[in-house]
């Protein structure tokens, strides 16, 4: 194993491409961060370093709007991700541990439907639908729409993970007289946890980031962060938006770091 002519895993050029990928991903964000410190009303001219736009985010004329929008976004994303992850976990169990059954293909089609239907089509269809059943648009319509389209995003990593777990673990547990419920909660779920967490995170990001569907189904005065930002940014990006973005970025880096260390400490037990 040790003596092979080459390392089977590494390919020349892959590292530079990865580096390029990160540069493309981060360069615009870096620019945003730098320009959020710009002491100018317009982003196009550089007029020295200042923190005034950070102050503006919390005290400026638009601060209330963004606070409410941020609150809506986070609550919707957490609830939608939790509900859709739960639904997706149950569905994945049926699909992958439920044997062969007639509706399996149909169910799979239904679960992947939000991925297959382009977002603009879902958005318009949902708008027409809510309109015709008289569901007044508001916080709830956004939440319901988000739960629905987040399901496949949660489902994919979960089912991928479950396919990678051989059922011998559960079989062994049941051979030792564990009930099916116990096999599920004590064996399968813990093994599934990485898949469930990545499903949750994916669903959370998708919900937090969604603009198109939200923009169609949101009601009067109910904004999420993306729609509120869109309202501000479509006339050209402004320094206060850059400050908000920088803070969002900082918060997510902190969150991600914490979750990394939490998962690490869990593993040591």
């Amino acid at each position: 194993m040790a003596s092979r002519k080459y390392d089977i895993k590494s390919f020349p050029g892959f590292l530079p491409i990865t580096a390029l990928c990160l540069v493309i991903l981060y360069a615009p964000l870096l620019v945003v961060t730098v320009y959020s410190l710009n002491d100018s009303n317009s982003i196009t001219n550089w007029e020295g370093v200042s923190f005034r736009w950070y102050v503006d985010v919390f005290t400026g004329p638009e601060s209330d709007k963004f606070k409410i929008a941020a609150w809506n976004s986070f609550t919707i994303a957490i609830v939608a991700a939790t509900v859709s992850t739960t639904i997706a976990t149950l569905a994945a169990t049926a699909m992958i541990r439920g044997g062969r059954f007639r509706l399996r293909t149909v169910s799979f089609g239904l679960i992947s439907l939000p991925l297959m239907v382009p977002e603009i089509v879902t958005a318009v269809a949902t708008l027409i639908f809510f309109n015709s059943i008289g569901f007044t648009r508001g916080y709830l319509t956004i939440l319901v729409a988000h739960i629905a389209f987040c399901i496949p995003f949660a489902y994919m990593p979960i089912s991928a993970r479950m396919q990678g777990i051989e059922d011998s673990y559960e079989q062994a547990a049941m051979d030792l007289y564990a009930s099916k419920r116990q096999a599920f909660t004590k064996i399968l779920l813990p093994l599934m946890l990485p898949g469930i967490i990545s499903g949750f995170i994916l669903a959370f990001i998708i919900s937090l980031d969604d603009f198109i569907i939200t923009n169609f189904v949101k009601g009067a005065g109910v904004e999420t962060l993306p729609t509120a930002i869109f309202g501000s940014v479509k006339q050209g990006i402004k320094p206060n938006i850059m400050a908000i973005s920088t803070m969002l970025l900082a918060v997510s880096i902190v969150m991600v770091t914490i979750s990394y260390f939490v998962s690490k400490s869990d593993n040591t037990k």
């Binding site: 609550t75 957490i78 609830v79 939790t82 949750f200």
Partner: peptide, 13 residues
């Protein structure tokens, strides 16, 4: 913790 956070968030919302 995740569930707890969720419940709190829902209540607050």
């Amino acid at each position: 913790t995740l569930l707890k956070t969720t419940a709190t968030a829902m209540a607050l919302a």
